[in-house]
Structures are given as C-alpha cells and as structure tokens.
Amino acid sequence: MRTFFLYIIYKIFWNFFFKIIIGVRYIGDKKLIKHQQFVMVANHNSHADGVTLMTSVPVDRLAITYPVAAEDYFGKSKLSAFLSWFLINLLLIPRKRDEKNPKRDPIFIMDSYLKNGKSLIFFPEGSRGKAGKIQVFKKGLGHLMKENMNIPIIPVYLEGIGRVLPKGNKIMLPSITKIYFGNPIFLENESVEEIVEKAENAVHYLKNRCDSNNSSKLRD
C-alpha cells in the first residue's frame, strides 16, 4: 500500500515537478538499480535535497528508502512532521547524540533502519553549506557504517540545487540542477575515520568532475 502510494505521488507529482519544472538532470543514476540496499551520501545545500534525490530512486524501492533530515526543521510541528513522512518519506532524527536514551539517538535510529533492510539518503555535512563548497563531513557517517559494513555507499554530488531553494527562502524557483552519481564504495575493514574520508573524497571527486565539465574548452 505504502509502495503504491509513494509510486503514485512520485510518478505523478515529484518526478514531473523536478524533471520538467525545476530542471533536474541525472548523470549516471543506473548504478543505483544494481543495489538492493544502499546509503546515499550527498552534499547538502538546500531543504529540497532529500526529495530531489528521492526522484532518482527506482520506484519499487521508494518505500524502503528514507532521506534523513534533522527534526528541528521538518519536525517543527506535528503536521509538518507527518506531511514530510507522508509525502516524501523523510526520516526525522534529532541533531545531538544521546547515548543514554537509544530512542533519541540519531545513530541508533538510523542503524536500526539499516538493520531492517532499509536504505538511507544521508547528508554527512550536517547542515546546509554554501553552494559550490563542501563542508567537512561529520563522524556520524563513520559510526553508522562501521556497524553496517555490508552496505555500499553511493557518493552523490548535487550541483545547482542551492539556486532552487537557497537558505532562508521559502519559494522554489526553476533552475537547472545536476545530480552526479559516483561509483559505489564497498567497505572492508576501514576505521570510522577512514570511512568518512573515503566518502568525502568520493564526493569531492564528483565535484571536480562537475566543475571541469562546466568550464571545458569553449565552443562557438
């Protein structure tokens, strides 16, 4: 039922909205389809990041893929928390770690989702950064993946979404947005720091590819 509902709402509304109106282009999204479960790691520029990335997920996996967001913005009221789950399938987590109370601990919540076979879309920068600049990745990603070494990380770089819905704005405006998908990272025995570093390097690599694509040699 949930799969069907998300299928309808994404097929009819979100995909149309983001592809036709906003102008989202996908570069290399075929890599997703091969993996039943994944953790997508992306840079964070805008509140629209999560739903934009969800439009690239194959429809049969929409209901088991959750973009992770901090509850201090989307969970302001009960209604907005409900709608962001109902319409987008957002997973709301608290910002601060809480070791004593596992139910309020972000890493524990995400870990239990992954253990149940769900996929996550994750923004390791923590908060929205300036367009074109990737902030330092937080350690949370490492702690989470350390417990789930069998799940591949898919690095993603979002370009231009900051112009669609920048910080401090409420209205979305159309602007060409490109989503670069990188090769999946398979973990073996890395430490927490190494996992974070690997993911960070992969996203930086995609950013460089994107930048060089934009300014390669001039044509007529």
């Binding site: 102008g23 231009g160 112009r163 920048p166 704005n169 209205i171 405006l173 159309p174 602007s175 060409i176």
Partner: peptide
C-alpha cells in the same frame, strides 16, 4: 531557466525572477 542557471544574479533577485517566470 537555462539563462538564469548561467548568469550571475543576487539572492535578492529571486522575487524578480519569479515575476519573470
């Protein structure tokens, strides 16, 4: 949309862009 994705505009121009659309 392509034009606005390429040219450099300020953040405060978004209201103007909306009216252009």
């Amino acid at each position: 949309r392509e034009f606005y994705s390429v040219i450099k505009l300020r953040k405060s121009d978004r209201a103007g862009m909306l009216w252009c659309y």
